[in-house]
């Protein structure tokens, strides 16, 4: 879902560029808390991986395709602020080198695929991991659900922008219906890829997965000698 130049008018594009710039500025601060010697390389690899997988459009029926957005995947792997930076780098590379996504629409794309998808997806992930038992299966279920939700939400956020600043004179309801339905299907693909990749990384290097920190704390406590009375901490 890369918005090309021309769909949205100039004021809307300027506004989303300002929102994107603000979000990236916040992410540059927030990411400092998430990144250390061990996780920094994973951030680079995550961005590269998202770029690669975004090239592989999968069919979703009716002559339509979709591809991974990757925001939730990145957020679970490296943390939400770092994920915003990863997505921004991917979108900048795509827009500047590959003419994928418009240049004037870059702020729109960072806002939708970076900020909106990650903010909503991370909120869903945190909520689910808070209520589910602290297990690897819960992390995967939460990641998959968050990834699924993030896609139609980003699509509907585009519809909102279109309602405000769409260049074409088209009923917003028509756009919403077309965008919503197909992006629910694409969200299923997003969930499948996210669960597969997070599962693979958890199997190999669980210590690096930002979204699984609670698992490590639980494991560390479980390893304590049984003589420690319950509730001693």
């Amino acid at each position: 879902m890369h918005v090309p130049d021309g769909f949205l008018d100039a004021p809307t594009s300027v506004a989303t560029a300002a929102v994107a710039a603000g979000g990236v500025a916040l992410a540059l601060r927030g990411a400092r808390r998430e990144l250390d010697e061990r996780t920094a390389p994973l951030a680079g690899l995550t961005a590269a991986f998202v770029f690669a997988v975004q090239m592989v459009n999968f069919p979703v029926g009716a002559g339509t395709s979709g591809h991974l957005m990757g925001g939730v995947l990145a957020a679970v792997l490296v943390g939400p602020w770092t994920a915003v930076l990863c997505m921004t780098v991917v979108l900048v590379v795509q827009a500047l080198l590959f003419a994928d996504g418009g240049l004037t629409a870059l702020g729109t794309n960072v806002t939708l695929l970076g900020l909106v998808a990650i903010a909503v997806g991370w909120a869903v992930f945190r909520l689910l991991t808070a209520v589910l038992p602290t297990t690897r299966g819960s992390v995967l279920a939460a990641a998959g659900t968050a990834a699924f939700v993030s896609v139609p939400v980003a699509a509907l956020a585009f519809v909102g922008l279109f309602a405000v600043g769409g260049v074409a004179d088209v009923a917003v309801g028509t756009v919403a219906a077309a965008m919503g339905g197909v992006h629910v299907l694409i969200g299923l693909g997003e969930a499948a890829i996210t669960v597969a990749v997070v599962g693979a990384v958890l199997a190999v290097r669980p210590d690096l997965v930002h979204g699984a920190r609670a698992l490590r704390r639980a494991a560390l406590l479980a390893e304590r000698p049984t003589s420690v009375p319950a509730g001693a901490r």
């Binding site: 090309p4 592989v56 260049v167 074409a168």
Partner: peptide, 30 residues
């Protein structure tokens, strides 16, 4: 082996009738 079908946004834009408002990127000749 990626699907060559239009992606969700392109498809929706065509369905809703505003795909023709898309403009070439300034770096389309990259």
């Amino acid at each position: 082996y990626a699907s060559a079908s239009p992606d969700g946004l392109e498809w929706a834009a065509e369905q809703a009738g505003f795909l023709d408002t898309a403009e070439d990127s300034a770096v389309a000749a990259s």
